[in-house]
Amino acid sequence: MPLTQALAEGKLTREELKTFMQRSDGPALRRLALWIMVLAGTTTLITLAWDSWLIWPAMFLHGIVLVHHFSIQHECVHYTVFRTRWLNDLVGQICGIIIMLPHRFFRYEHCDHHTYTQLTGKDPEQVPMPRSYGEYLLYLSALPYWKAKFTEVARHAAGRLSETERRFIPREEYATVIRDARVMLAIYALIFAAMALSGWWGLIWYWIIPVFLGEPVMRFIRMTEHVGRPSVAQMSENTRTNLVSAPWRFLCWNMNYHAEHHYVASVPFHALPRLHEKLRDHIHVEPRGYLGAHLDILRQIREART
């Protein structure tokens, strides 16, 4: 395991590790309060732009925030948002409903992502390296992503799990995953029924269209984590840490420190910048941020084609 390795190699002492791992509810509650204010702000922008074409950029902006519920959910998967364990489950489930990602299923899938990070054929979350600019743009459109997610939720709700899923979901939990997918679809059905009954279709504009508009941004960010890095087990090679500005760090809950997160997944978001200072010389860092990572990916596509 990379953590045990890092300790053995003296990159991190046990005392430091212990300090970095400490959990508390305060930082996340404060961040969530700010989060809700940001959401209120982008929601207001949509309301203000309601009768003009400006509603589209407003929905896009709001969508960028909405798709970042993935970042909170991801952090909840690791139980590092709150010290109080059940709060992680609750908040994770809510985020999952916002972006249609059943929480427990994601948790199991994500476990294998941590075990087999970036190993082709084994890492269930691996985003393949695009072989052409066309493939690159197609991935960024989020169309393949949504196709996969809709198929996945429908398959689970129908009571079926794929071969790979049967490998990473513990047998005792098959039924839970199936029930979660059904509950999620039932919640969506209820929401639509309520909109139909009330005649108020606002959530389409405040939630659904923005999520679809914003998802390409999340795809853009998710690509920077591993795409273009080698398919090897060394954590120092297979993952990219991107140095990005404060608003992006706020939105992604510091998950731009991705290599640090993979080294020690038990370290909460608020301690990742400090962990970065310890590990920065032992990991792959992209100082130019998300854009730099994409320049690197595009360069690799170009070079592979010539």
Binding site: M1, L3, H114, T115, A265, S266
Partner: peptide
Amino acid sequence: GADLCDGYFDGHVIECPLHQ
């Protein structure tokens, strides 16, 4: 198979460092 001794410990709960 991860080493629980490198995990996070709180009260009576030991959390595995690999998958929590």
